[in-house]
Computed example of a mutant assay.
Amino acid sequence: MTSPTNPASPFPSSAAGTPAPGYPMPPASGPAPEPKRSWFARHKILTGIGAFVAVGIVASALNGGGGAGSSNAAATSPAAQSIASIASQATAGQDSAAAPNPQQQTQNDDASKADAGKADTGKTGSGPSFHGKQSSDVVGNAGDTIDDDGIQVTATAVSAGDATLGPTACSTITITNGSKNTLDVNALDFTLQDPAGAISNSGFMGSSNHLSASKLIAGGSVSGDVCFDADVSAGGQYVLLYKPTLSLFGHRRAWINNL
């Protein structure tokens, strides 16, 4: 008697449920096992972070080796264009400041003409040069008003004075005390240097209106002539010098006379 055969199975089986000799083992019944997922699928967050870092490294490497292309991109970036625009505006402002305004230049010229009769006393050693000039001298031309420490002194051009007792040279002096202190005035504070470099003291001949010795209070003014025993008829450069003997302050003033 033969063993019964399971009509639903293509494999003959024995009574024990095992396949007959010569037939393979039938597949196991039940659901198929779920396939095992990869490491990346099981760790999505770490995978995303790693991808972000990798992209950053690649981008950094590309930027570092961009060469001329990277330089051109940086030069044409909005930030670079903004900096270039600011630099251009600053340069334009400097050029505008350096360019003289014709109207302002005219005003400056007019002011210079108005001050032509007043020596620049802001700096020692200023003004024209002459033989024997000292570094601290404040120099002007004949007829100039020299203001030093508030003391304003005007000296007219040297000219021939009264020659009854011999040739003389005189200049009319006006002194205004613009300082806060009392000023001692004396004709002996003036000397005259001739073209040869000899310096003469003032005398009492040559004029009837000599500068008198006096004291000037603040705001006071005095005028008179200072004369010297000198013959200026031959011409040349004569320098009138003024240095108050009793004053501890102020500089020596000089007026150049080219006769």
Results as ranks from 00 to 15, higher is better:
residue 36 K to Q: 15
residue 137 D to H: 07
residue 42 R to Q: 06
residue 23 Y to L: 07
residue 209 N to L: 11
residue 6 N to E: 05
residue 126 S to K: 05
residue 140 G to C: 08
residue 88 S to H: 10
residue 28 A to R: 11
residue 22 G to V: 06
residue 177 N to Q: 03
residue 235 G to D: 03
residue 13 S to F: 10
residue 9 S to W: 01
residue 97 A to M: 07
residue 215 K to A: 12
residue 100 P to N: 09
residue 30 G to V: 10
residue 244 P to E: 04
residue 164 T to A: 10
residue 209 N to R: 04
residue 157 A to F: 05
residue 183 L to F: 10
residue 188 L to A: 13
residue 227 C to T: 09
residue 46 L to W: 10
residue 198 A to Q: 13
residue 88 S to Q: 10
residue 242 Y to A: 08
residue 106 T to Y: 12
residue 117 G to F: 11
residue 249 F to H: 04
residue 147 D to R: 01
residue 26 P to I: 08
residue 31 P to L: 03
residue 80 A to M: 06
residue 6 N to I: 09
residue 239 V to K: 01
residue 241 L to I: 02
residue 237 Q to F: 06
residue 167 P to Y: 00
residue 147 D to P: 01
residue 179 S to D: 02
residue 129 S to G: 06
residue 201 N to K: 13
residue 67 G to I: 09
residue 84 A to T: 11
residue 40 F to G: 07
residue 31 P to Y: 06
residue 16 A to R: 11
residue 256 I to N: 01
residue 143 G to A: 03
residue 200 S to R: 13
residue 190 F to W: 06
residue 35 P to W: 04
residue 76 T to P: 02
residue 220 G to M: 00
residue 219 G to P: 03
residue 160 A to N: 09
residue 125 G to S: 00
residue 184 D to V: 08
residue 91 T to C: 11
residue 221 S to P: 04
residue 252 R to S: 05
residue 174 T to L: 03
residue 11 F to G: 12
residue 5 T to H: 13
residue 84 A to C: 11
residue 79 A to T: 13
residue 250 G to R: 03
residue 15 A to E: 09
residue 37 R to V: 13
residue 80 A to N: 02
residue 39 W to L: 07
residue 110 D to L: 15
residue 71 S to Y: 14
residue 145 T to W: 04
residue 211 L to A: 03
residue 46 L to D: 10
residue 93 G to N: 15
residue 86 I to F: 06
residue 10 P to N: 12
residue 108 N to S: 15
residue 17 G to F: 05
residue 202 S to G: 03
residue 41 A to K: 12
residue 126 S to A: 09
residue 188 L to I: 14
residue 193 Q to C: 01
residue 52 F to E: 13
residue 30 G to T: 05
residue 185 V to N: 03
residue 255 W to V: 02
residue 227 C to S: 10
residue 160 A to C: 05
residue 246 L to N: 12
residue 180 K to T: 11
residue 14 S to K: 14
residue 258 N to F: 03
residue 58 V to L: 11
residue 80 A to H: 02
residue 188 L to P: 01
residue 99 A to H: 12
residue 72 N to T: 15
residue 57 I to H: 03
residue 41 A to S: 14
residue 185 V to K: 01
residue 43 H to G: 08
residue 202 S to R: 04
residue 42 R to E: 13
residue 63 N to F: 15
